[in-house]
């Protein structure tokens, strides 16, 4: 059988499938990156710039990091209240599309007021507790190898909750040393660190 003949058979098959599926053909093409990512904006804000204290901004996050976090929410290796339930609604390919969309969006610093005294205490902890070794540039650095996202200018409430959750729950994919150090910190320390990173713009 020649190539052309095979191709014609394939085409005939596709046409038959197309006729049967009818309205299903558009669905098979898949939603665009923006269509998928815009469904997140109700909670994470337009283009991933969050408007709320406890929900993080995800604009400008490296796509590998965001993809991996969503994938971990989906397989529940990253504990969550609601993100696990939502991430399960998207295929791996769709999660890649969503991550690619948000990587292209511009980071915007939080508008939340930060406490100067707490931020100063947080700045000391950032050094003394060795956060600084990895979270360079006062938390502005992102590293996709380590799933390390930007903390500088992030909503302090969301940073506090993330650290609190690292203390309370099991995160098999998180750096063990970081977890060990985090677990030694008091609640006031966590608030101080959250204020410090949030105040970095």
């Amino acid at each position: 059988m020649g190539h052309r003949k095979i191709r014609n058979l394939v085409l005939a098959g596709l046409m038959a499938a197309g006729t049967m599926a009818l309205s299903g053909t558009a669905d098979a093409a898949g939603a665009s990156d923006a269509m998928l990512a815009n469904t997140c904006a109700g909670c994470h804000g337009t283009n991933g710039v969050s408007g709320g204290p406890a929900i993080p901004s995800i604009a400008g996050m490296k796509k590998e990091i965001l993809f991996s976090m969503m994938q971990q929410f989906k397989d529940q290796s990253r504990p969550s209240t609601i993100m696990g339930r939502i991430a399960k609604g998207y295929s791996e390919g769709e999660l890649h599309q969503i991550a690619a969309f948000f990587e292209k969006q511009k980071w915007v610093n939080t508008t939340a007021a930060t406490d100067a005294a707490m931020a100063a205490k947080g700045a000391k902890l950032h050094k003394s507790k060795k956060c600084k070794g990895c979270h360079e540039e006062n938390g502005a650095t992102q590293d996709s190898e380590e799933n390390m996202f930007r903390m500088a200018g992030q909503w302090p409430g969301s940073l506090y909750l993330m650290m609190k959750n690292y203390q309370a729950h099991d995160y098999p994919n998180a750096p063990k040393k970081m977890i060990k150090r985090l677990k030694k910190l008091s609640d006031a320390d966590l608030h101080a660190l959250a204020n410090f990173y949030a105040s970095q713009k």
Partner: peptide, 15 residues
């Protein structure tokens, strides 16, 4: 979840 309710509001209003 109570905190996320508040934050949901903040983000959806900004949207």
């Amino acid at each position: 979840e109570a905190q996320y309710n508040e934050s949901w509001y903040g983000s959806i209003m900004s949207d």
